[in-house]
Structure formats: C-alpha cells, structure tokens
C-alpha cells in the first residue's frame, strides 16, 4: 500500500467565465459579481423556482444575495423566479426542447464547453421508463473543471513502459474527483508521457453520462487526448462491446461500474487483451467487496490496481494505490 502526498497544485483550464452566457440575464449579473475566490472554486450553480440562488464551492453550498455576496442566510438571498428558469431553459436548449428528447430522458443537457445542466421537474413515464421531464422547475449547472495533471501522482503506478497499462479501478465517495482523474488519465495515456517513456495508445471512452469527455454533438469539449475516441451517451456494456468490435482500442475508459452485467462485460474485455480503467462509488475497499459485482471481479483478480481517492486535502486526493495481488482482502 502506498500513501501519497496531496495532489500538487494543478493547472486548471478554463475559468468557467463562459458559463455566464448560459445564465438568464438577471442571474448572469449576480454571478458575474461573485468574488474571485468563489469563482475559482465554483462547482455548481443551482436554480430552484421560488427558492434562494445557491452556488456550490469546494467547501459546500452558499446562498447568494442579489448583490453577488455569498456569505448570507437564505432570507437575504436572491429568490429564483419561474421566469429565470424559463429563460435559462430557452438559452440552454436553443429554444428547442423537442430536439433534446434523449437528453430529457437522461435528466441532463450537455452544453458546449463541457458544462452539464441537471433538470428537475415533473417526470413523465411510459411503461415504467422515463419518457420526458415536464414543468422543469430546477436547474443545476455543473462546471466541469478539467484539471490537467490530476493523474500525475497515479500515472507511474498505472503504466508499464513503453506502452502497457494496468487494469485499474478508481474508487471513492462522490465528489472526490474520480471523473477528473479519469479524464486526465485518458488524456495522458492517449497523448503519451515522454518523461515516463510511455508512448501514446489508442483509448476509447465509453461515456454513458457525457461526463468524462463532455461531448457536444459528438465532439469532446474536454481535452481527452490525441488518440481518443468517445462513445457519447452509450450504455456501458454495449459501449464496451462496440468499442472492442469497431474501434480496436488498447485501453477502454468508463465511469461508474457496479452492476452485475458490467462485471460480465468487463470480464470479456479483460480476456480480450484490452485494458480497462473504470471508476466506482465506494467509501472504502471493504465497501466495494460487499457488492457482488466487485466480489466477482476481485475473485477473478482482474484488476491490477485499485486507486482510492478522498477529499482529505481537497478533491482528488489520492489516498492509496493498492496492487492487484494484494487485493486478497477482496476475494475471500
């Protein structure tokens, strides 16, 4: 087991300023007035009809006053109106909700720049499946922060010169930077890492929730590397098989595995000689083992590296990297 120092100061691309264009005029002015320190850590902007405007920063949620001050109670905060939500919806959908039926079914809309807007409202179902969302009353604009260098601490343990990669599982509780790490891993593996003597390999990202590459109309909005293909919005199991058949990758990258069928698909892919880097929600390795899909995978000793993240020194802190052969605690 390895304990690693907190992630070094990373270089972030994009200041998030272009999100202003997606906000309704009234809220645009308020958010533009936010202090620079808040801007730097801005993770989410939440609009809920009739309730205070909320921004999420690294430390937690903050109410925002009409003057753009964040340290206020809910009574002094700006109350979001139905008109604000209506206008924002028109901006983010280009006034064409009808063209976004798949997005409504998945509950979020991806914007140019890799931003995502989660939707809340009246869910209409058909045969037990979500058909669409009507009367949208809540919007959550998530700012994808591309952190170049997020994978620097992990990389030496994940690759084997000159072009081999280990099967890797990244596990952590939510909001610890799994996806950020995954994105940077994909980028660096794809581009090649000269100082580690690693030549780039073909990477396919199966991006079921459009979070890793943030595709807009099929084109990745985040830098995911020179040799990377993205299957955007594609269910994981089908996506991994499709990639295997059609795109001949060396590495498949995917987010949030955990169901039994994911495990079966992974087994097949791992046996095909393609390497997989995946993430999973878990609070601890023991937590992982309790889930049947992982018990199965660990018993097969498919993963060669387990990376555990936490927020101990901010999001993206690499807690431990466990070698596959030491994963006995998992197998039983």
């Amino acid at each position: 087991m390895h304990h690693l120092a907190p992630v070094p100061e990373t270089r972030e691309t994009g200041t998030g300023c272009d999100i202003l264009a997606y906000l309704p005029p009234g809220i645009r002015d308020i958010v533009a007035c936010l202090p620079a320190s808040t801007w730097e850590q801005l993770e989410e902007i939440r609009l809920r009809v009739g309730r205070p405007l909320v921004v999420t920063v690294r430390e937690g949620e903050r109410f925002v006053s009409p003057e753009g001050v964040t340290a206020v109670g809910p009574s002094k905060a700006y109350l979001v109106t139905a008109d604000d939500v209506k206008r924002m919806l028109q901006i983010i959908t280009a006034s064409s909700l009808y063209a976004l039926e798949d997005e409504l079914r998945s509950g979020f809309i991806t914007l140019p720049g890799g931003y995502r807007v989660g939707l809340a409202g009246k869910v209409i179902t058909e045969g037990g499946r979500v058909r669409t969302i009507k009367h949208i009353a809540g919007l959550n604009l998530r700012i994808a922060r591309e952190v170049r260098g997020a994978a620097d601490a992990v990389l030496p343990r994940v690759i084997r010169k000159p072009d081999q990669v280990y099967h890797t599982l990244i596990a952590s509780p939510p909001r610890c930077g799994k996806t950020t790490l995954l994105r940077d891993l994909a980028r660096q593996l794809s581009n090649g890492i000269p100082h580690l003597g690693f030549t780039g390999v073909t990477v396919v990202i199966v991006d079921e929730r459009s979070e890793i590459a943030g595709c807009y109309r099929g084109i990745p909005q985040c830098d995911v590397g020179l040799r990377t293909d993205v299957l955007d919005g594609c269910p994981k199991v089908e996506g991994m098989m499709l990639a295997l058949r059609a795109l001949s990758p060396r590495v498949i990258v995917t987010d949030e595995i955990g169901r039994e069928e994911d495990a079966r698909a992974l087994e097949e892919i791992l046996n095909a000689g393609v390497k997989v880097i995946a993430t999973a929600h878990a609070f601890s390795p023991e937590d992982l083992v309790r889930r049947p899909a992982f018990t199965y995978l660990f018993r097969l000793r498919l993963f060669e590296r387990l990376v555990l993240l936490s927020r101990r020194y901010g999001p993206g802190t690499v807690d431990r990297i466990i070698d596959g052969h030491k994963l006995d605690l998992a197998g039983g």
Binding site: L89, Q90, S96, L97, Y98, L104
Partner: peptide, 10 residues
Amino acid sequence: VLGVSDCEDQ
C-alpha cells in the same frame, strides 16, 4: 408554445 415541449406537442 413554440420550442418548449416535445415533438408531438409541437
């Protein structure tokens, strides 16, 4: 109503 509902509705 333009643009604010699904195809069928439009």
